[in-house]
Design a protein around this nucleic acid. Structure first.
Length: 474
RNA sequence: GCCACCAUAGUCUAGAGGUUAGGACGUUGGCCUCUCACGCCGAAAACAAGGGUUCGAUUCCCUUUGGUGGUACCA
């Protein structure tokens, strides 16, 4: 059996977005599941849209996400070069072969003429130059006239192919245009380069976005003209931002790197995007990359687009965070501690143990610990609690005792607080509520009263208790 | 406009010619608890509409509607 070879062929036009990453993921999963090869090819034939540094971002993202490609520009392989701009001469040669066979032709029409025929109602190129004599073509070529090479599509007939996710796709040839294969700058268009490269690189499973679903018949015509074997196709619906818009850089939607920066784990991100458009057909929804390689299946691919839901991604990320070892969590959290300067000087280990199962992304560390800096002037009504039946009066009565007890029994604070309650006729919850609010000034904190005291340290705890007392006394 | 593709709760999805239409996020009630969260137990919430085919259709077919894609010297 033939070795499965898939490819991810992005254009270096900026950061790698989530949709692109998912396409790469599926191509990777399919290849690996079949013990095949996953290839990276850079499609930089559009000089205008090229963005410096974009290629490196693609390399880094794929590698970081664990989508290790077997062949690619920076790792080599037997079918290089893997960058289209470096393959320029190859395309021209094949285009000329097509001209010989009559499946393509030189076209000298300029923009003005094209605009004119469209203005006159043409919906596609009118094959004007197809009918030019050989002599005239030779003459104009010799003269150095600008030209493009167009595909010669049959004027009638239908073309059908089988897509692994959509099934039979049929398109009428009359709806197909004589696409430009080679642009006037000598570069191939996607329409041509993808066919030539996929064939030359031995790609037998083409996995890409649905935007190519209806132009695939044209590509198949090219394969046929060359006498090449047509690959299997898997077209993928896009990931949407909302019901009508695709997730895209244009709308400033987050890139892989942005999510990582905010404290999403790559495993969670990969897991989540895999599930946007693919289902294992059971209720399971947590998978490692290795498990997905085993479980991936084409019939689990969705035929409809899916909307990216960050809320669910966060939940999933939280699940991954809870499963980390405390050590791994601590290590990973370091850069986020550095990000929030007000955390300097506090016990990171303690904070980590408090936070690991209450945050969903690492960036939450800052907001979760905010009470450390936002204590002064907190809302005193927080001391009033319906469930525990406490109010400002309770606080006023309790605080002097709480201060004394903290100063003397900080090391066994919990026991001391309980004893204080028993001696003075308060419920445990009442004491702890007043105490916690009095030292944090926050409705909710990442831990209970004594845990917060431990974090603040004895001096700061006492200081805050005194400040609270002073405020309730006015 | 023309062509193609798609259509299960707010979201991601499972599903089959006959099901109490399943799961997850979110929402919500409760339990647990030194707050919140976690965790656990519940609840509400969907087959886009109209025609067929059929004993029976949400499932198959058609139409409509809605959405997306293509219609580039962009990919």
């Amino acid at each position: 059996m033939q070795e499965v070879r898939t490819r991810f062929a992005p254009s270096p036009t900026g950061y790698l977005h989530i949709g692109g990453l998912r396409t790469a993921l599926y191509a990777y999963l399919f290849a690996k599941q079949n013990n095949g090869k996953f290839i990276l090819r850079i499609e930089d034939t559009d000089l205008e849209r090229y963005v410096d540094g974009a290629v490196e971002i693609i390399y880094d993202t794929l590698k970081d996400a664990g989508l290790i490609y077997d062949e690619g520009p920076d790792v080599g392989g037997d079918y290089g070069p893997y960058v289209q701009s470096e393959r320029k001469d190859i395309y021209l040669k094949y285009a000329q072969q097509l001209i010989e066979s009559g499946d393509a032709y030189y076209c000298f029409c300029d923009k003005e003429r094209l605009e004119k025929i469209h203005a006159e109602g043409a919906t596609k190129y009118d094959k004007h130059c197809l009918h030019m004599s050989k002599e005239e073509v030779a003459e104009r070529l010799a003269r150095g006239d600008k030209y493009v090479i167009r595909q010669n599509i049959p004027e009638s007939g239908i073309t059908t192919y089988h897509d692994m996710v959509f099934g039979e796709i049929t398109v009428d040839c009359k709806d197909l245009e004589d696409n430009i294969l080679i642009k006037s700058d000598g570069m191939p268009t996607y329409n041509f380069a993808n066919v030539v490269d996929d064939h030359l690189m031995g790609i037998n499973y083409v996995i890409r976005g649905v935007e190519y679903l209806s132009s695939t018949p044209k590509y198949n015509l090219l394969y046929k003209a060359f006498g090449w074997e047509i690959p299997h196709y898997m077209h993928l619906q896009p990931i949407m931002k909302d019901a009508t818009r695709k997730l895209s850089k244009r709308y400033g939607d987050a890139s892989y790197a942005d999510f990582i920066k905010r404290g999403f784990l790559k495993e969670a991100l990969i897991n989540y995007i895999a599930l946007l458009g693919w289902s294992p057909k059971n209720d399971r929804e947590k998978f490692s990359l290795e498990e997905m390689v085993q479980l991936f299946s084409v019939d689990g691919l969705s035929k409809s687009a899916s909307i990216f839901d960050e809320v669910k991604l966060k939940w999933l990320n939280g699940q991954y965070i809870k499963e980390m070892s405390p050590e791994a969590f601590y290590d990973y959290a370091q850069r986020f501690f550095d990000k929030y300067e007000f955390l300097n000087g506090y016990d990171r280990k303690l904070i980590c143990s408090l936070l690991q199962n209450r945050i969903e992304i690492f960036d939450d560390i800052g907001p979760a610990m905010e009470f450390l800096t936002k204590f002064d002037g907190y809302d005193l009504t927080l001391l009033c609690n319906q469930k525990w039946k406490t109010d400002l009066g309770t606080a006023k009565a309790m605080l002097p005792g709480l201060i004394e007890l903290t100063e003397n029994n900080f090391d066994s604070l919990h026991d001391a607080l309980v004893a204080f309650g028993e001696q003075n006729g308060y419920k445990k919850g009442q004491v702890l509520w007043i105490f916690r609010i009095a030292i944090t000034g926050a409705q909710s904190t990442p831990g209970g009263a004594t845990e917060m005291a431990e974090l603040l340290g004895k001096d700061e705890t006492v200081r805050r208790l005194k400040e609270s007392l002073a405020r309730v006394n006015v």
